[in-house]
Every structure is written in C-alpha cells, then in structure tokens.
Simulated scan of single mutants.
Amino acid sequence: MRRLISFPCAGETLAATLDEAAGKTGLLIVSGGNEIRIGAHRGMALLAARVTQAGHPVLRFDRRGIGDSTGENGGYESSAEDIAAAARALRDAGAERILAFGNCDAATALAFFHASAGIDALLLANPWAIEPTDALPPAAAIRSHYAAKLRDPREWLRLLRGGVNIAKLLRGLRKASQKPSEAPAGLTARLATALGGAQVPVTILLAKGDNTAIAFADAFKGAAWEAARARTKVETLDSASHSFAAAADKDWLLQRVLERLA
C-alpha cells in the first residue's frame, strides 16, 4: 500500500510517500537537485513501486523547501537533518535495516551525512563531484566528448563545411586541456574523504556517457581516492542517461537495488 505521510525536521514538516511491504530491509530514496520525490520521468515513484512488489518498504521524501515540505531550500549541503528525519520515519514504519539510494548531489549528500542518519548501506548513482567555474561541462566530460567526435569522419566534414561554432570549440578545448590538479579540490577532496572513511557498504553506479558520471570517474582515479577505491564497489551502465530514463536503464537500476537490499 502507498501512503502519504509527514514527519518533523528541525521545526519544519517534511512530506513523504511510504510504500509499505513486509520486509525488514527498507529503501530510502533521496532526491537530487531540486527534484520532488517523484523523480525525473516519475522514475523514483516507479522504482519504489517495483521494489515494494519485491517485498521491501520504500520511503521517498521532499527535503525542506522542496515540493510539499515546509521551510527553506538550502540545497544538498544542508540536508543532513532531512536525511536523518527520513531515516527515522522509515524505521518507525518497521524497517530494521536501511539502504539509501541517491542520484547526483543526493548521492554526495548521502556520502557526507549517512553516518549521522544511521543508514546501513549506500547505493550512490552518478555522484556530484563538480565545482562549476563556468557554463561549460566539466573538463573530463569535454575530453570524452571530443574524443568521440575525433573518431567520427562526419564530424571532420562538419568542421570543414563550417558547421562548427569555432569560438565554442576553442573554449571547450581550453577547458579540456586542464589537468585534474587544476580543478577546484574542495568538494572532491571532501567526497573522497567521506567515501574513504565510510563504515558501511558502498556501491557506486555510473551511467558511462553522463557528464556527471564522467567527471566523478575522472576524479575517482586520483591519489586522494585510494581509500575510497578500496572500500567501494563501482558498476557502470552503458548509457548517457543521468536519470536512468530508458526502460533498460530502469531495469538495470532495479536489479542493483534489489541485490543490495537482499
């Protein structure tokens, strides 16, 4: 049964959706960006329904200032209390063990704040590890993009025929030439430390062609991530969909969720 519930969080009220099931291991879904709990393309609502059919309760919620929840939206960096309140609500509903899933900056928030919420395992999709300096994609994504184009003869013909914005091309090449050490280190260093010190099982899911995933994978190769690499499992999907929009992507994600819940 799917129920709408609410619970307190730092003097505000969070709205949530609880899909009930008899299992004692529950899934907590944390939305990324400013998405409401239904998710992009209704993806999180559909995932919750399928996980519940497999016997596991699922809770999705709007953090403060988003959707039906009260309060101010402080972004993912201020979501520690929201995640902890949602985890308590899922335990109050009968879950004895909690797997938390988040995509993009929700994945990063879970890496930062899971311990204080008492979460037992993490499934982190396309974690946000980008500190934007301009409107362009991250350097690693630009390099991947141009590498694919250089392998395509049609792109060379397009360039010769004047079908390419040269100014944009030059800006992209300048950014693509950045070494990883030239990128701001604050967020990536904090994320590396959080994952390297995690005391719960962590699985990272990456959509191979997604810019956010490409940037994370590039950072993940660095020396600062040695401890994180030793403690985490990484699985890659051959897709460019950040939100696992295609039917095959949804099936792949569901299988990973169910494996971790088991």
Rank of each mutant, 00 (worst) to 15 (best):
G65C: 08
A192W: 00
E182D: 15
L261P: 09
E77S: 10
T133V: 13
A111K: 02
L47R: 05
R229S: 06
A189Q: 08
K221P: 03
R171Y: 10
E131T: 15
G196L: 00
D105E: 07
A247D: 15
I66R: 02
A183M: 10
A183I: 06
K149Y: 03
A15R: 14
K233P: 01
P138M: 07
L136M: 11
A248L: 12
D218Q: 11
A228F: 04
L191V: 07
A115P: 01
E81P: 04
R190E: 11
L122M: 03
H41P: 00
V257S: 02
L150D: 08
A207R: 00
N165S: 14
L160I: 14
A223F: 07
N211C: 00
E77T: 10
G94D: 04
V51R: 05
G43P: 09
N211P: 00
A16H: 10
E35W: 15
N103H: 02
L124R: 07
A207T: 07
M1W: 12
P138G: 15
L18F: 11
R60Y: 02
A213R: 02
E226W: 02
A84G: 04
R174E: 14
R260Q: 11
K149T: 00
A121Y: 06
V200H: 01
R2A: 08
P8C: 12
A95Y: 04
L160N: 06
R158N: 14
L157R: 14
P184F: 06
P138V: 07
D152V: 08
L122Q: 02
S79M: 03
I83W: 00
S144V: 04
P201M: 04
A192C: 05
P138N: 13
F220A: 05
A245R: 13
V51T: 14
W225G: 02
E235T: 11
A84S: 08
A227Q: 08
E235D: 07
Y146V: 05
A224Q: 12
N165C: 11
S31M: 15
A117H: 09
R190C: 09
R154Q: 14
R91P: 10
A167H: 12
E235L: 12
A215Q: 09
P153T: 10
A147T: 13
L150F: 09
Q255A: 15
E96F: 01
V202Y: 04
L254V: 10
N34E: 15
R260W: 06
L205R: 05
N165V: 07
A89K: 00
A40E: 13
P180K: 14
S144T: 10
A219S: 13
C9I: 05
A183T: 08
L195Y: 01
F216V: 03
P201F: 05
K208P: 00
R60N: 01
A228T: 01
K168T: 14
A217E: 08
K233Y: 02
L173M: 15
D134H: 10
P138W: 07
